[in-house]
């Protein structure tokens, strides 16, 4: 028996919004430690890794490990039927071929449930090596989304250059060249507005704008985003999900032909 309840459906809606543009389907691996999903996008350029810890749920029970393959478009349809403040419960029997998603209004006067067919997805699980990153940048997630959106107008690629002075995003195309530099912030009143850089050595990497823009669909989940970079390895873009876990996106760098 698997059962997981969250106090607010809005979190699950935001998580789905953060992955459904990259992935059409995914397997939710459930164990007593929580729920994990790992999947490559269709073109196999990026990887999504979602972790939701069991202690972040209002109720969590998982007697036996189960893997639930879901069509994310179908799940998004179901979540559209929830009000943001509804309780949401996911339930499945051991070895079931369906999952039930139930929404309850705060006053318990409206209860709706949706049974969704599960899929057998033959997805390979990739091992992500432990990496000492040369640069780790933390910045407001809205700022990162804005930069990715703005620079995508000028080029398919953005160059991210990180030094101890700051981080610079550059896009060059037919129009010309766009540069956006962010310096580390001094003392700021609100931690969520700060830009911080933890640099071991400077790094310059090039990434495809369309994937970075897809990752920014996770912006509503977190006020800050963390970019971890190292020469010749995938970028990690991480959004923490408060008290519940995180979503990490890995993106292979572009290299010269």
């Amino acid at each position: 028996m698997f059962e997981a309840r969250l106090g607010q459906a809005t979190i699950l809606k935001k998580i789905l919004d953060a992955i459904k543009d990259l992935l059409t389907e995914g397997t939710f691996d459930c164990s007593d430690s929580g729920i994990q999903l790992q999947a490559m996008d269709n073109s196999h350029v990026s990887l999504v890794s979602l972790t939701l810890r069991s202690d972040g749920f209002d109720k969590f029970r998982c007697d036996r490990n189960i893997s639930m393959g879901m069509n994310l478009g179908s799940m998004a349809k179901i979540l559209k039927c929830a009000n943001n403040e509804d309780n949401v419960t996911m339930k499945a029997q051991d070895n079931a071929d369906t999952v039930t998603i139930m929404f309850e209004s705060a006053n318990q006067e409206k209860v709706s449930d949706y049974e969704m067919k599960l899929m057998n997805l033959d997805q390979e699980h990739l091992g992500i090596p432990e990496t000492e990153y040369s640069c780790v940048v933390r910045m407001p997630s809205m700022e990162f989304a804005r930069i990715c959106r703005d620079l995508a107008q000028f080029s398919e690629s953005v160059v991210i250059c990180c030094t101890k002075e700051g981080v610079k995003f550059t896009a060059s195309g037919d129009v010309g060249t766009a540069n956006i530099k962010l310096a580390q912030t001094g003392s700021v009143d609100k931690e969520e507005e700060s830009v911080s850089i933890d640099m071991q050595e400077p790094v310059t990497l090039t990434f495809a704008c369309r994937y970075l823009n897809a990752f920014t669909k996770a912006t509503p989940l977190s006020t800050q985003v963390q970019l971890s970079m190292c020469a010749d390895v995938p970028l990690v873009v991480e959004y923490a999900i408060k008290d519940l876990g995180y979503i990490r996106y890995y993106l292979a760098p572009k290299i010269e032909d």
Binding site: M40, V45, L47, E124, P234, A252, D257
Partner: peptide
């Protein structure tokens, strides 16, 4: 050139 993510991360 864009490499795939599975160039870096191998199946386990």
């Amino acid at each position: 050139m864009q490499r795939g993510i599975n160039t870096y991360f191998k199946p386990v």
